[in-house]
C-alpha cells in the first residue's frame, strides 16, 4: 500500500517540477499558461490521490474528494481568464524567428 502512495506523491512532484521548468523556459504568456495549468492540475490531483490512499476510508477522504472536484472546475477557469484577458488586450502568440543557415 505504501509504495502506491509514494508513487503518486512522486508523480505529483515530478509534474510540478516540469510545470515550473516550463513556466521558466517557454517564451510567451499563452505557452506559459499551458505549462502551468496542465501540470498544476495533474500534480495536485496526484497528491490528492496519495492523500486519499494514505488516509484510507475516513471522513477526510470525502473532503479531499470534494476539494479535488472544486479544483477541477476552478483550476482551468483561472487560466482561461488570464488567457482571455491577454487575448482581448491583443497579445500576439510567440513565433519562432527563422534563422538563416
Amino acid at each position: 500500500m505504501m509504495w502506491i502512495v509514494q508513487f503518486f506523491m512522486g508523480l505529483g512532484i515530478f509534474f510540478g517540477i516540469f510545470g515550473n521548468i516550463g513556466l521558466l523556459r517557454f517564451p510567451d504568456i499563452y505557452t506559459r499558461l499551458q505549462a502551468s495549468s496542465k501540470c498544476s492540475t495533474t500534480s495536485l490531483f496526484s497528491i490528492f490521490i496519495a492523500c486519499m490512499l494514505l488516509e484510507g476510508f475516513t471522513p477526510m477522504t470525502g473532503r479531499i474528494l470534494l476539494i479535488a472536484l472544486f479544483f477541477l472546475v476552478t483550476g482551468p477557469v483561472t487560466s482561461h481568464i488570464i488567457g482571455r484577458h491577454a487575448w482581448e488586450r491583443g497579445v500576439i502568440p510567440w513565433k519562432r524567428k527563422k534563422v538563416k543557415d
Binding site: F18, Y30, W87, P93, R96
Partner: peptide, 19 residues
C-alpha cells in the same frame, strides 16, 4: 502532461504556437 514534459525538456523547444 507527458506532452508538456517532453516539450519542456527538449533542448530545442519544439513548439509552433498559434491561435
Amino acid at each position: 502532461n507527458l506532452d508538456v514534459a517532453y516539450r519542456v525538456l527538449h533542448p530545442k523547444l519544439p513548439i509552433e504556437p498559434g491561435i
